[in-house]
């Protein structure tokens, strides 16, 4: 690894840390912007006596200046103390940990579907053209127009009710059973992204197929499969990767819709519930988690793109 590559990576890490810091500040500030007194939320329905209010304010450092409150909070988070849920009166860690697994599995399952069917259909449309292209175009037009909850309802009705092929409620037990249970939720999440990624892939590949260096490879008699892999798909991949990276990272947040629709107790549904009932410690920690995932995933994709196309990284830095 050359010195410039290392410097580039260090720059990336610095930007990453800065983004995370700024977003943690924004997330923390949300507590100040929410209407209603946090003390009331902590007291939870009971009418607190002045002594209780005082005790709560002291316990939660609410009597300190705002910036100190932030430092207490972020210090706790970094040490692994994610705070206590106002609602359940339980440590946030204990709420998140058991639900994280199923959401991660759901998101991974969705990503696999998106990559296989989104990129696959995009490649197919670009390479075959004609009727195949038209079919994919129509299908993806429908796909991008279907909100996730509508897809979920359709899936529940068709595969759950009419055909009874898949379970429509809960997450199941054991890995295989869980995957079986997560099939419809994953499809419902994936449809929109499959359609989107298929479009992106198709147009990126069509643009690269018309590149002049592909003519060069044709004259030289390079086998078509190799031309496609090394000169068309490779060159289209930075575009496909950076766009799909940004959208796929958002899946953790969107998974809430599928979790609600299919009655899965994941972190998505936890987030929705916590937000609705002003359980701020839970909302803050989950928001932080989502932001971190999003930022880290995109940084990883940036690095992969820079490996594929070093010049793009250089020119961006010089510019």
């Amino acid at each position: 690894m050359s010195a410039s590559t290392i410097r580039q990576l260090l720059g990336k890490l610095g930007a990453l840390a800065l983004t995370l810091f700024l977003s943690s500040v924004v997330i923390f500030s949300s507590i100040l912007l929410t209407p209603g007194d946090p003390v009331a939320a902590i007291a939870g329905g009971r009418r607190p006596t002045p002594e209780m209010i005082e005790a709560i304010r002291e316990a939660h450092h609410l009597d300190q200046p705002v910036w100190l409150q932030y430092l207490y909070w972020i210090g706790d988070v970094l040490r692994g103390d994610l705070g206590t849920s106002f609602l359940y009166k339980a440590p946030v860690v204990d709420l998140i940990a058991p639900r994280l697994g199923v959401t991660v599995l759901l998101v991974l399952y969705t990503i696999v579907l998106i990559v296989i069917f989104g990129i696959g259909s995009g490649i197919l449309a670009a390479r075959r053209g004609g009727a195949v292209d038209k079919t994919v175009l129509v299908a993806t037009s429908v796909g991008v127009a279907m909100p996730t909850f509508v897809v979920a309802i359709l899936l529940i009705w068709v595969f759950g009710r009419l055909l009874s092929w898949f379970p429509v409620y809960g997450a199941g037990e054991g890995l295989l059973d869980t995957l079986y249970h997560l099939t419809l939720p994953a499809i419902s999440l994936a449809v929109l992204y499959i359609a989107y990624l298929s479009r992106i892939t198709r147009s990126a590949i069509v643009a690269q197929q018309g590149a002049e260096h592909v003519d060069t490879a044709m004259v030289r008699g390079i086998p078509r499969g190799r031309i496609f892999r090394n000169h068309v798909f490779l060159n289209a991949s930075p575009q496909i990767l950076s766009i799909s990276g940004a959208t796929v990272a958002g899946l953790f947040a969107v998974s809430a819709i599928a979790e609600q629709a299919f009655g899965i107790g994941g972190i998505g549904s936890l987030l929705v519930e916590a937000a609705a009932r002003k359980d701020l410690p839970v909302v803050q920690v989950l928001s932080l988690l989502l932001v971190a995932l999003f930022v880290v995933l995109n940084a990883v994709i940036d690095v992969v793109v820079a490996v594929i196309d070093p010049d793009s990284a250089k020119s961006r830095r010089d510019a």
């Binding site: 590149a211 002049e212 260096h213 003519d215 060069t216 490879a217 004259v219 090394n230 000169h231 490779l234 060159n235 594929i308 196309d309 010049d311």
Partner: peptide, 14 residues
Amino acid sequence: MVFQTPRAHLNPLR
């Protein structure tokens, strides 16, 4: 075959 614009006719990523 050699073309007019060598920069466009070589794959920039390889």
